[in-house]
Each structure stands twice: as structure tokens, then as C-alpha cells.
């Protein structure tokens, strides 16, 4: 990967993988998902226009329970917009999103997060002037101390919950190697550490599905390996992921299935190997 610094994924669509430098190959026996179950997340015919531009044009997507699904496509294909539509940070013009059997497209974004669908951002967003630990604790759901009056009337219970959550947060921080930074301002973290914190914070929500927007962008190869290992680890523990990524090594090593978008539309879907040899995908990437 050091020898191949270009992020363009389809430079050499060969099926052979140089094995040492890239993220650890996912052993297929690890798969925890069952293709016969109804999908955890399914989006049907999502559309979004900004002025005259159809950013997302009848796009659909399915994420089975327990899987790692990749979402790729050239720049401007509408991947991030699709993420925004799924998490309702942007309201879709039309289309449905079902999550865990509930239609979530009419819900405000914070309720979607509460249901267990948590997103991260393309450029990692940490709360700079809060400590790393506070960033983590914020993500906890259903805290007694989140209600104004409880703060004054149920302080003992809040203190107890905080102790528990703090331990939990420190465990997660420890697993991503950030526990030594727990009491620093999150704003003092490096770019890669911010990505890790964002993922760790998403885990703190205790979600069913995490949407990762380019987890490996702007991150050095060693840390990419580390991030991939974490994602696989969490997936083995039952977490489902939907990942936007330009780094094809990451996609190939992690994903069970890949969806390809171009110009707002679904272009193809299949296993990573199928996608790599799909002529339509190659054409979209090479601009023909």
C-alpha cells in the first residue's frame, strides 16, 4: 500500500492481493450474518435534488444484519448525500427507508440515532473543547441526567450512571488505543485519532448499525490497518457496518457486499470480486 499511494481504487482491477501490506484479509468464516433474514436497513427509490442537480436519483440499498457493506463510487456520485438521506440529516424528496422494521424517513435525525442507526462524518467531527472522555460519554443513550429536573432531584442515580458509563467509555477508548488521551481536549487529537474517536463514540451509542463515511481517508497506512482490525472485531461482536470508502484495499478486505453508485444512481452490486471485474463499474471510474 505504501507503494500504491493513489487512492484511485480501480487502478489495477486484478484479483491477486499482495498480502503483507494490506489490511488483514477477512476470513469468510467469520461472517455473522444470515442472508435469509430481512435486511436491517433497506432504502427504496431515494431521490434528492439540489436545485437542478439530482444528487441521488432513485437509489436503493440493502444492509443485512451482521454484515459489512461497502458503498463506492466516483467523487460526486452521491454517496455522502445518500448517507445524509439515510440518517435524515437531509430530508429525501421521495423514497422510503426501513430500519429494523420501522420506516425511519419521517423521523428527525436524533430519533434515528436513538433507534440505533449512528453515522460518522466524512471529515471527523469531534467536540474540540470537550475532553475525549466527555465526547464518549455524550453518546450514551437514555441518561437520567439528560433531563433538566433530574439533575437537581436524582443526583445520586446520575453519579452512579456516570461511573458505570465512564468505565465503559474507558474500555472502548482502551481498545482503540486512546485511553491515554481520555482527559485531553478532543481538539488536541491528530486527524487519525479523531477518526478513531468518532468510531469509538458511535459505539458508545450502542447502535445496531454504524454508517462510516470514509473511515480511512487521510489516515496513514498503519492506522488504516488498525481501523480495519477494529471494524472486523466489532463486526464479529455483532455490529453491522455500512462503509463509504475510496480505498479499495479496505473495501476488498472488509466488505461482504459492495454497492456502486454513479451520478446518483445504483450502478451495480455484488461481492467485492464481482465488482472489481464489472465493466460498467470500471467505465464509471475511468470516466467513459
Amino acid at each position: 500500500m505504501v507503494d500504491n499511494p493513489s487512492p484511485q481504487p480501480m487502478d489495477h482491477p486484478s484479483t491477486e492481493h499482495p498480502s503483507t501490506d494490506r489490511p488483514a484479509q477477512r476470513s469468510k468464516s467469520d461472517r455473522t450474518f444470515d442472508a435469509n433474514l430481512p435486511p436491517l436497513l433497506s432504502a427504496q427509490d431515494l431521490c434528492k435534488s439540489f436545485g437542478g442537480v439530482r444528487a441521488v436519483d432513485h437509489a436503493s440499498l440493502e444492509v443485512p444484519q451482521g454484515s459489512i457493506i461497502g458503498l463506492i463510487g466516483p467523487n460526486g456520485a452521491g454517496k455522502t448525500t445518500l448517507f445524509n438521506l439515510l440518517s435524515n440529516f437531509t430530508r429525501p424528496d421521495s423514497g422510503d427507508v426501513m430500519f429494523n422494521g420501522t420506516p425511519i424517513h419521517p423521523l428527525p435525525s436524533h430519533q434515528i440515532a436513538q433507534l440505533g442507526l449512528v453515522r460518522t462524518f466524512q471529515v471527523a467531527r469531534v467536540l474540540s473543547r470537550l475532553s475525549v472522555l466527555d465526547n464518549m460519554l455524550l453518546a450514551t443513550q437514555n441518561q437520567t441526567g439528560e433531563a433538566l429536573l433530574n439533575v437537581w432531584t436524582r443526583s445520586r442515580q446520575i453519579a452512579k450512571e456516570e461511573r458505570l458509563q465512564r468505565r465503559h467509555a474507558l474500555e472502548i477508548l482502551d481498545s482503540v488505543g486512546l485511553s491515554h488521551m481520555a482527559h485531553q481536549y478532543a481538539g488536541s487529537l491528530s486527524g487519525g485519532q479523531r477518526k478513531l474517536l468518532e468510531m469509538a463514540r458511535a459505539l458508545m451509542v450502542n447502535p445496531k448499525l454504524i454508517l462510516l463515511d470514509e473511515p480511512a481517508a487521510g489516515v496513514n497506512p498503519t492506522l488504516i490497518n488498525q481501523i480495519c482490525t477494529h471494524i472486523q472485531q466489532w463486526n464479529r461482536e455483532g455490529m453491522t457496518f455500512l462503509i463509504i470508502e475510496h480505498n479499495m484495499d479496505v473495501i476488498m478486505s472488509l466488505c461482504d457486499r459492495v454497492w456502486v453508485m454513479a451520478e446518483g444512481r445504483n450502478l451495480a452490486t455484488g461481492t467485492p470480486t464481482e465488482i472489481q471485474t464489472n465493466p460498467a463499474v470500471l467505465a464509471a471510474y475511468l470516466g467513459q
Binding site: S109, Q111, A113, V118, T120, F121, L127, L138, Q141
Partner: peptide, 11 residues
């Protein structure tokens, strides 16, 4: 700090 983060975390 960033209200999008708060929203994304269910607040």
C-alpha cells in the same frame, strides 16, 4: 461545539 454531532448521537 457542533450541533450536527449532537444530532448524530441522538440528542
Amino acid at each position: 461545539e457542533d450541533e450536527f454531532v449532537a444530532r448524530a448521537l441522538g440528542k
